[in-house]
C-alpha cells in the first residue's frame, strides 16, 4: 500500500513538484471553475482556453520555450479576446456566446498557424498537453502565485460575484460593482487557464476547472460546501491521476482529467442531484 500510494512521492522529486502543482491548481483554478459552472459558462472556459493559444505561441516563437514569454503572451491574448468579445456584446446585436465564439475561433486558428510556422510536433504537444511531470521551479512558483492571487481576488470579489451570478439586475441597481465583478472574474478565468496550461496544456486545463465543480454541484446544496467539495475532488483527482500515470506509465495530464471524469460519473450515479436519485424507491415523504 505504502509503495503504491506514498513512495512515488517520497522517492521522486518530480512527483512531489507535480503534486504541489496539482494542489495549487485545485485551490486556484477549481473555485474559478465553480463560478464558471454556476454562471452557465462552462463551455466558455473551453473557448477561452483556445483563445490563449496564439499568445503563448507568439511568446514561444519570439523567445523559444520561455516560461515568462509564453505566460505573458497567453494572458494578453486571453484578455484581448475577453474584452473584445465584451465590447462586441455591448455594442452590437450579437450575444456574448456568439461574439466570444468568433474571437476564440480566430484566435485558435492564428495560434495553430503560428505554432506550425516554427516548431516540431513535440513542441506543439507540449503547448497542447502541458507537462505536469516536468514542472521546474519557475513554473511551480508561477502556478502557486496565480493560485494565491486567485484566492485573494475571489475573497475580495465574492459578494459582488455571487450577486452578479444570482441577480445581476439587482446588483446593477444598488451599485457599480456589476462590470467589476464580471470582468474581474473573466480575468481570473484567463490567468488560471494560463496557469493550468503549464501543467495540463491548453486543452485539458479546463478539465480540472469544470469536472470537479460539476461533480461537487451534484452533492452540495450550499455554495461554501460546493467550493470545498470541488477543491477536494480536484486535489484528490490530481494525486490519483499522478499515481496512475506513475504506475501505468501513461501521460499525467490526461490521467488527471480522466480521474476527474471518474469522480464525475460516480457522482452522477450516486449523488442526490444525480441520475438515480429521482428514480430509486423513495423514503416516505415529509409532512410539510
Amino acid at each position: 500500500m505504502f509503495d503504491l500510494l506514498i513512495s512515488p512521492f517520497t522517492e521522486f522529486a518530480f512527483m512531489r513538484r507535480a503534486l504541489a502543482g496539482c494542489l495549487a491548481l485545485a485551490l486556484g483554478a477549481t473555485p474559478v471553475g465553480v463560478f464558471l459552472l454556476l454562471r452557465r459558462m462552462s463551455l466558455m472556459g473551453d473557448a477561452m482556453s483556445h483563445a490563449i493559444l496564439p499568445g503563448a505561441a507568439l511568446g514561444y516563437l519570439a523567445f523559444g520555450l520561455s516560461l515568462g514569454a509564453m505566460t505573458v503572451g497567453g494572458i494578453v491574448a486571453g484578455l484581448v479576446v475577453v474584452f473584445a468579445a465584451g465590447l462586441v456584446t455591448r455594442a452590437s446585436v450579437l450575444k456574448e456566446d456568439a461574439s466570444l465564439a468568433a474571437f476564440y475561433l480566430l484566435s485558435l486558428a492564428a495560434g495553430v498557424m503560428i505554432v506550425s510556422l516554427r516548431g516540431q510536433n513535440l513542441d506543439l504537444l507540449h503547448v497542447l498537453f502541458g507537462s505536469v511531470l516536468g514542472l521546474d521551479d519557475a513554473s511551480l512558483l508561477l502556478i502557486a502565485s496565480i493560485a494565491s492571487v486567485t484566492l485573494a481576488s475571489l475573497a475580495l470579489l465574492f459578494r459582488p460575484l455571487v450577486m452578479e451570478c444570482f441577480d445581476p439586475a439587482f446588483l446593477r441597481g444598488v451599485s457599480r460593482w456589476s462590470p467589476v465583478a464580471h470582468y474581474g472574474f473573466l480575468m481570473l478565468v484567463v490567468v488560471n487557464l494560463v496557469s493550468g496550461f503549464h501543467a495540463l496544456g491548453t486543452l485539458m486545463a479546463v478539465g480540472i476547472m469544470i469536472l470537479p465543480s460539476a461533480a461537487a454541484r451534484l452533492w452540495a446544496k450550499g455554495l461554501p460546501m460546493l467550493l470545498l467539495l470541488a477543491v477536494l475532488f480536484a486535489f484528490g483527482s490530481g494525486a490519483s491521476g499522478l499515481l496512475l500515470s506513475f504506475h501505468a506509465d501513461v501521460p499525467a495530464g490526461p490521467a488527471i482529467v480522466l480521474v476527474c471524469g471518474v469522480v464525475y460519473f460516480v457522482s452522477l450515479l450516486a449523488a442526490p442531484g444525480g441520475l438515480l436519485a429521482g428514480r430509486l424507491p423513495v423514503r416516505h415523504h415529509l409532512e410539510s
Binding site: L38, L156, L157, R159, P160, V162, M163, C165, F166, D167, P168, A169, F170, V174, S175, W177, A220, K221, G222, L223, L226
Partner: peptide, 30 residues
C-alpha cells in the same frame, strides 16, 4: 424591482442570503 428579475433560481443561495442583499447600502461589498 423589475418585472421578471434576471434571478437564477438554481443558484445555491439561501433565502436569508438573498434578503440580506437588501442591506448592500449598509455593508457594501466587504
Amino acid at each position: 424591482m423589475p418585472q421578471r428579475g434576471e434571478i437564477d433560481h438554481s443558484f445555491p443561495v439561501s433565502v436569508f442570503d438573498v434578503v440580506a442583499m437588501g442591506l448592500w447600502h449598509e455593508i457594501g461589498a466587504f
